[in-house]
C-alpha cells in the first residue's frame, strides 16, 4: 500500500480526507525504523547479521573515536578546534558527574562518558537524511537503561549493604506515612528504567516520525511549502532534542548513581 499510494494517486487530487489517511502518504512514517540487513536484499535478521542498526551504531563509535582520540591526538596546550570540542565534551560530562555524584562518583566517569558519547553521536548521526537512528529503538534504550539500573542497584547494595534500602524508607516523613511512601518509592524505583528508556527512544522516534509525516505531506502541492517549512523547523528542534535527550539520559544516570552512593537523602 505504501509505495502504491504514490503511484496510483495524483498528489494534487488528494482530498483532506486522503491526506489524513494512511494511504495519502507516499511512504510510511515508521518505515525508517525497520531493521534490515545492510548487505544484500534479504529481510532475514539473525543475531549476528550486520544490519543498518549495526552500521549506524558503529558509525557512532567511529565518530566518538574521531572526536575524542584523533581530535585530542595533538595534545596541544593551546587546543585546535577538534581538541576544544573534545575537551568541552570531557569537561561537560566530568562536571556533571562531579556536581551530582560528588568526588566518589568521579570513579564512574568513564562509564557515564561512554553512555553520553554513544547516545549523542547516535542521535546526531541519525539526523542525517536517510540515516538510521539506533537510539530510536527500544531494544537499544532498554539495554542502556537496564545496564544503568542493574549497575546502580548492585552498586548500592555493595556499597551500603542493606543500608541501601533506606532509600525507600523516608526518615523525614511521619511514621504513619512511611509504609505508604515506601511503596510509592519502590514503585518509582522500578519505573525508573522504563521511563529512562522510553523517554530517549520515544523522543527520538517521535521527532523522526513527525518529520516523515511532514515529508509525506510535501507531496501535496498546495501545502508543500508549509510542510517544507515545518520540516525545517522540526529538524532544528530535533537537533536540540538530540542533545538534550542525551544530556537528560546522562544526568539521570548521575542522579541514580548518586542514590546508590549516598542513599540517605
Amino acid at each position: 500500500m505504501r509505495p502504491k499510494g504514490a503511484t496510483t494517486k495524483e498528489p494534487e487530487m488528494a482530498t483532506p480526507q486522503d491526506a489524513g489517511d494512511e494511504g495519502g502518504l507516499v511512504f510510511h512514517p515508521m518505515d525508517q525504523f525497520i531493521v534490515k540487513p545492510f548487505f544484500g536484499d534479504g529481510t532475514e535478521v539473525a543475531w549476528y547479521t550486520v544490519t543498518n542498526a549495526t552500521v549506524w551504531m558503529f558509525l557512532a563509535v567511529i565518530a566518538t573515536f574521531l572526536l575524542l582520540v584523533i581530535g585530542s591526538s595533538g595534545r596541544a596546550t593551546v587546543p585546535s578546534r577538534m581538541q576544544s570540542v573534545a575537551e568541552l565534551a570531557y569537561g561537560f560530562v566530568y562536571k556533571m558527574v562531579e556536581d551530582i555524584c560528588g568526588k566518589e562518583g568521579v570513579k564512574y566517569f568513564p562509564y557515564i562518558m561512554t553512555l553520553f558519547m554513544f547516545i549523542v553521536c547516535a542521535n546526531f548521526l541519525g539526523l542525517i537524511p536517510t540515516a538510521f537512528t539506533p537510539t530510536s529503538h527500544f531494544a537499544v534504550t532498554v539495554v542502556l537503561a537496564l545496564a544503568v539500573f542493574l549497575t546502580v542497584t548492585i552498586l548500592g547494595f555493595v556499597k551500603n549493604g542493606t543500608g541501601f534500602l533506606s532509600l525507600f524508607w523516608v526518615a523525614s516523613a511521619p511514621l504513619a506515612l512511611r509504609p505508604i511512601l515506601a511503596i510509592i518509592e519502590l514503585i518509582s524505583y522500578f519505573v525508573r528504567p522504563v521511563s529512562h528508556s522510553i523517554r530517549l527512544a520515544g523522543n527520538v522516534m517521535a521527532g523522526h516520525a513527525v518529520i516523515k509525516v511532514f515529508a509525506g505531506f510535501a507531496a501535496i502541492a498546495v501545502i508543500s511549502p508549509v510542510s517544507v517549512l515545518a520540516i525545517t523547523a522540526m529538524y532544528g528542534l530535533e537537533v536540540l532534542v538530540s542533545f538534550i535527550q542525551a544530556y537528560v539520559f546522562t544526568i539521570l544516570t548521575c542522579v541514580y548513581l548518586k542514590d546508590a552512593l549516598h542513599p540517605h537523602h
Binding site: 557512532a60 575524542l68 585530542s72
Partner: peptide, 26 residues
C-alpha cells in the same frame, strides 16, 4: 537479539576507546 548483540559490542568498544586512550589523554 541482533540489536542487543551489536549494541553491547559497540558499547564495549566505546568504553575501551574512552577509558584506555581518550579520557586519560584529555
Amino acid at each position: 537479539g541482533n540489536q542487543i548483540f551489536w549494541l553491547v559490542i559497540a558499547l564495549i568498544a566505546t568504553y575501551l576507546i574512552l577509558s584506555r586512550v581518550a579520557l586519560p589523554r584529555i
